[in-house]
């Protein structure tokens, strides 16, 4: 892995976000944590991240979905890989039944279930970043 990758975690549970960050940092990633979509959005607009880890059920409901949709519409963020982390896989399946795993909130995303095994998390994060770099050689825009 060339220069250090910077990741943003948006999750309203600090204990959960902390654990996720711990896994990623010990694997050599740099992480920022925000606890709501608003702060998360501000962070995305201020810094450049290689990947976003996004919780779905935040605040009064599926605020993560709203954030993902906002990202999808944003010219500069649309291509950023997003790893959706949710404790509600079944709920997702029932919210969007009939769709393979999840509805694809942004063009380049994937979903893991909460809690997530460290190996699986690192595996997904690595693969998403790799795929993103392959799409835009050189990494940076």
């Amino acid at each position: 892995m060339n220069p250090t990758k910077r990741l943003l975690i948006v999750d309203d549970d600090p204990d959960f976000a902390g654990a996720i960050s711990e896994i990623l940092e010990s694997a050599g990633y740099e992480t920022d944590i925000t606890h709501n979509p608003k702060e998360g959005w501000a962070a995305l607009k201020t810094n450049k991240y290689d990947l976003l880890l996004l919780d779905i059920m935040m605040g009064r409901g599926a605020e993560g979905v709203m954030m993902a949709r906002k990202i999808r519409k944003d010219e500069s963020l649309r291509e950023m890989p997003v790893l959706i982390i949710t404790g509600l896989r079944e709920q997702i399946a029932f919210l969007f039944p009939g769709q393979a795993i999840h509805p694809g909130f942004v063009p380049v995303d994937e979903l893991v279930e909460k809690p997530v095994e460290p190996e699986l998390l690192l595996d997904r994060v690595g693969a998403l970043i790799e795929a993103s770099e392959a799409r835009s050689p050189g990494g940076d825009e």
């Binding site: 204990d15 959960f16 902390g18 654990a19 996720i20 896994i23 809690p115 997530v116 095994e117 460290p118």
Partner: peptide, 17 residues
């Protein structure tokens, strides 16, 4: 669910590290 998930996630980290 939220607290249980957080406990489990931290346990994962602990076991991993």
């Amino acid at each position: 669910k939220s607290p249980l998930s957080a406990v489990q996630q931290n346990l994962f980290v602990l076991a991993h590290q």
